[in-house]
Simulated scan of single mutants.
Amino acid sequence: MRLTDKTAIVTGGGSGFGAGIARKLAAEGARVMVADIAVLKAEAVALEIGGLAQHVDVSDDRSVANLAEVALAVFGRVDILVNNAGITHLPQAMEDVSEEEFDRVFAVNAKSVYLTARHLVPHMKANGTGAILNVASTAGLSPRPRLNWYNASKGWMITATKAMAVELAPSGVRVNALAPVAGETPLLKSFMGEDTPEMRAKFLSTIPLGRFSTPQDMGNAAAFLCSDEASMITGAVLEVDGGRCI
């Protein structure tokens, strides 16, 4: 119970890695707000873990402001913020990605981190403590062709994590990131282009441990980085990728 008496917000917590993280944080004793644009999925996870569901569009300032307001009203304080919500564009030549797709990827994957910081960092600074965890990707460390702008958005998140860590360290707020390889999430088909046994085998052949990242893997890593056991760790990007980036 490493997170007893802690409160947490997990964006994109209704499915995939976010749900795995929400489940593990709750299992470690945290009170968890499961925030997702798919509110029915958030409600299902929240019911399972005894948490609170909240609708949020992480790319919209007013929606994120409301998320912060509700969390503070219900919990009284926010100790942990997990920026997990993310999307991708389909694999294609970089010049073929539409402007609309590009804007959406950066709104959800990058602007969201700015918006949650805008509305929750002042609270953490005032408390003199807090843990922020950004879910990046191996794509930000070892980019793959045909996912150019997704790769770039996750590279942005990694740089943002390190910049946030340096700036917020004097205030007692730690900021780290996780870099998973693809996993059994709603985005898997989008990453591969098509979900077939052949495509899975091809993808898995690039992962030395021979399997995808799981929500449980992500939850375990997140619980550690968000706990006091990691009190000397900030600005780190932990690869949860089975050796993919080696």
Rank of each mutant, 00 (worst) to 15 (best):
A35Q: 06
P208Q: 10
D5A: 11
F106A: 02
M218I: 12
L225E: 12
R244K: 01
G18D: 13
A8T: 14
A30I: 10
A107I: 00
K162H: 09
N220D: 15
R77Q: 05
P170M: 08
A46K: 02
K202M: 12
L204D: 13
A201H: 01
P91I: 12
M1R: 15
R2A: 05
I207F: 10
D96Q: 11
A222T: 07
K125S: 04
T214N: 04
H55K: 13
A30W: 10
S63V: 00
V173D: 04
L168F: 05
T206R: 14
V175I: 04
M94H: 09
A131L: 04
G51A: 05
F17N: 08
G50L: 06
P145E: 04
G210F: 04
A223L: 09
L225M: 08
K6Q: 13
L3H: 11
H55P: 00
G20Y: 05
A163W: 07
A236I: 13
G128P: 01
D5C: 08
V97D: 02
V10C: 03
A65V: 09
V70G: 09
V56N: 02
R77K: 12
V58Y: 07
S231P: 00
A68G: 05
L90A: 11
T4Y: 09
K162A: 02
S227Y: 12
S205Q: 10
K41L: 13
R174A: 03
V10M: 04
Y150T: 14
C226I: 11
R104L: 01
A236T: 15
T116R: 07
G86D: 01
T159C: 06
V113K: 00
D103R: 15
A169T: 05
G155K: 03
A165R: 06
S213C: 15
R174D: 06
G51D: 09
M232H: 14
D96L: 09
A65C: 10
A223T: 10
G219Y: 09
E194S: 14
G210L: 05
A182T: 12
G193V: 08
K189E: 15
T196F: 11
K189W: 05
G242Y: 09
K41W: 04
G128H: 01
L188D: 10
Y150E: 12
A30R: 11
T11Q: 02
N84Y: 04
V70R: 14
T161I: 11
I207V: 15
L47S: 15
G29T: 13
C226V: 15
A93V: 00
I132E: 06
D60S: 03
